[in-house]
C-alpha cells in the first residue's frame, strides 16, 4: 500500500511537472470548461421553458445530474484520457514490452502513470453545481456523505468500461475512436434516465451503457430517495466490471505480439 502511494506520488509529480510546460493550456481548459457548463445549463433550461419536469425531475434536481456528469467528465479528463488513450501508442510501437517488464502491476501502471491537471476545472465546477443545487434542495450533510458511495461506484464503472475498451487495442490497433464512441454515448448521462422514452432508450442507458448508474443514481441518493437495492446493484456492477477489466486485460495480453521489437 505504501509502495503504491509512493509510486502515485512519483507518477503524478512528474506528470504535473511536464504539463506545467504548457501552463497557458490551463486557462484555456478552464475557459472551455466554464463555456461548456454554461452551454449545458442553457441546453437543459430549454426543456424547462416548455413547462415540464424533465423525466419528473425538478430544475435543481436535474442540475444535480448535470453536476455529477461534469464531475465524471473531469475524472475522465484528469485520469482516463491521459492514460488509457496512450495504450494505443504502446501497442503500436511495441513499448508495452517495457511496461510489462516493470516490477509493478501492468494495469496499475497503464491506468495511473499520468495525471493531467486540465480536468480539474471540470471537477471543481461540477462539484460546485452539485453543492449549489443541493443547498437549494436542502439536502443534509449525511446525504452528501452517503452520495459519495454510489459516486465512487460510478468512477469505478466508468474506469472499467474505458479500460476494457482500451484493452481491445491489442487486437485492433487503431481503436482510439472507441473511446470517442464511449464519450458520445455517455453524453446521455447529462439527463436523468427517466427523461428518455421508456423502452429501447432506457434499456440501453441502463444496461448497455449504464449512464443510469453513473449520474442518475448518485443524484437520487443525494436527494435522499436512493433505493438500497439500486445502490447495491450499482456497486455490484462497478465491482463486476472492475474484475472483468482485470480478467480481460490478462486474456488480451496472451494475444500481444510485441510489434517491432
Amino acid at each position: 500500500m505504501r509502495r503504491t502511494l509512493r509510486l502515485l506520488r512519483l507518477f503524478w509529480g512528474t506528470s504535473i511537472a511536464a504539463e506545467m510546460e504548457y501552463r497557458s493550456n490551463f486557462l484555456m481548459s478552464a475557459f472551455t470548461s466554464i463555456g461548456g457548463l454554461v452551454g449545458a445549463v442553457f441546453g437543459l433550461h430549454l426543456f424547462y421553458r416548455g413547462g415540464i419536469l424533465l423525466g419528473g425531475w425538478r430544475w435543481e434536481e436535474a442540475l444535480m445530474v448535470l453536476g455529477w456528469f461534469t464531475v465524471l467528465t473531469g475524472v475522465s479528463r484528469t485520469l482516463l484520457t491521459a492514460n488509457l488513450g496512450r495504450i494505443v501508442d504502446h501497442v503500436q510501437r511495441g513499448t508495452l514490452d517495457f511496461v510489462l517488464l516493470k516490477p509493478v502491476d501492468a494495469q496499475f501502471w497503464l491506468s495511473t502513470r499520468r495525471l493531467s491537471p486540465w480536468g480539474i476545472p471540470d471537477l471543481v465546477f461540477g462539484l460546485g453545481l452539485v453543492l449549489w443545487a443541493g443547498v437549494k434542495r436542502g439536502v443534509s450533510l449525511v446525504d452528501v456523505l452517503v452520495a459519495l458511495v454510489p459516486l465512487a461506484g460510478s468512477v469505478v464503472t466508468l474506469y472499467s468500461l474505458w479500460f476494457i475498451l482500451a484493452t481491445t487495442t491489442i487486437w485492433y490497433v487503431k481503436i482510439y475512436n472507441v473511446t470517442e464512441v464511449l464519450n458520445s454515448l455517455l453524453e446521455a448521462g447529462r439527463f436523468p434516465v427517466t427523461a428518455f422514452p421508456a423502452g429501447l432508450y432506457r434499456f440501453v442507458f441502463t444496461f448497455v451503457v449504464p449512464v443510469a448508474f453513473l449520474t442518475t443514481l448518485p443524484a437520487e441518493v443525494l436527494l435522499g430517495r436512493g433505493r438500497l437495492t439500486l445502490i447495491a446493484f450499482g456497486l455490484g456492477l462497478a465491482l463486476a466490471l472492475f474484475v472483468a477489466s482485470r480478467a480481460f486485460f490478462r486474456f488480451a495480453l496472451r494475444y500481444y505480439t510485441s510489434a517491432s521489437s
Partner: peptide
C-alpha cells in the same frame, strides 16, 4: 440521444 429526450419532453 437528444432526440430521445426531446421526444419524451
Amino acid at each position: 440521444i437528444m432526440m430521445g429526450v426531446w421526444r419524451q419532453a
